[in-house]
Design a protein around this nucleic acid. Structure first.
Lengths: 158, 158
DNA sequence: GTACGACAATTGTATATACAAATGTAATTG
DNA sequence: CAATTACATTTGTATATACAATTGTCGTAC
């Protein structure tokens, strides 16, 4: 009887563990698959504007500054995926005329980056297209379900 | 009264739309952030084994074949993020001695790729470390919550 | 005020990825 | 059976990313 109980307990642990394993792996895979889907769709939209997702994100960060100067570190800290080499990403945006870069007079080690009128106009034409895709991408879930999803994702990163 | 009702209706629509917008954008961002978190942690573990996530995934696909020959297209179809150039990824794995490549005798256009003993051994030592990280990454949610999360993610991709 | 460490950004280099063009093989069609 | 098309992979090239080393600037301690 003792043996049986011990055995049962062990088996329960194994089953529970295996469920945990499967769930953990499944979740990581599921997030990855969903992210690939999202990224592909949004990249596809941005492609016609000759801009990458990261460049788009940086432009939006700069717009959110409302003219306040932004240096490279600020940008990097606020970027979704901390990519190395924000310098060269900004270079690309400068080449396209979407941003300007000045040396900070208070601290000559820093640079100040501003979005240009052209950059703001580009964002204005891109925004609705991206929004449309984002809405389509999440259309399969109700508002309640999306809210739950966001709550769980936020909790997951705690 | 008519005007008021009409106005109310309009406002409701605007609020609803704005909520939708916020939720759609928030969800896309949340997935991206979570994915970056996951990827960073797993990459960090794999780094000590001198292997990338994509290489690790391909090795696992090959192991899942249990000796059945696998060609490049099969691998590509089963990869999470359809990267171009599986050829060069396999090249890296060959250099490390983790896989072997043969020309398929039935159809000389195809190549057959197998995981080697060394590759299987590498996977065996990597697996528990990755599993540990995956478990830690999902530890903030209960089994019920993780199940809900997976259900929602799956539904989202439909 | 000069020597030192810390800071902010840039540059160099290796590797990774995306996409198009090219190579070699097989199947099909007249 | 020669020519054409489709298939499976590889190669070329441009761009992107990761990481380390370097440059120029600032703050501080002596």
């Amino acid at each position: 009887m003792y043996i049986q109980l011990s055995y049962m307990k062990e088996l329960e642990d194994i089953i529970k563990t295996k469920t945990d394993i499967a769930l953990a792996k499944k979740t990581v895979l599921n997030i990855s698959l969903t992210n690939v889907n999202f990224k592909d769709s949004i990249s596809h939209v941005l492609k016609s504007f000759d801009i990458s997702i990261e460049q788009f994100n940086v432009l939006r960060i700069l717009r959110g500054q409302h003219g306040k100067p932004t240096n490279l570190q600020d940008i990097q800290d606020r970027m979704v995926s901390k990519m190395s080499n924000t310098t060269r990403l900004v270079d690309k945006l400068i080449l396209k005329g979407f941003v300007e870069r000045f040396i900070c007079e208070d601290n000559r080690r820093k640079v100040e980056i501003f979005i240009t009128k052209k950059g703001l106009e580009a964002l204005q034409s891109i925004d609705p297209k991206v929004l449309l895709v984002e809405t389509e991408l999440t259309a399969a879930l109700s508002i309640e379900e999306l809210t739950t999803l966001n709550t769980l994702l936020t909790k997951l990163r705690k």
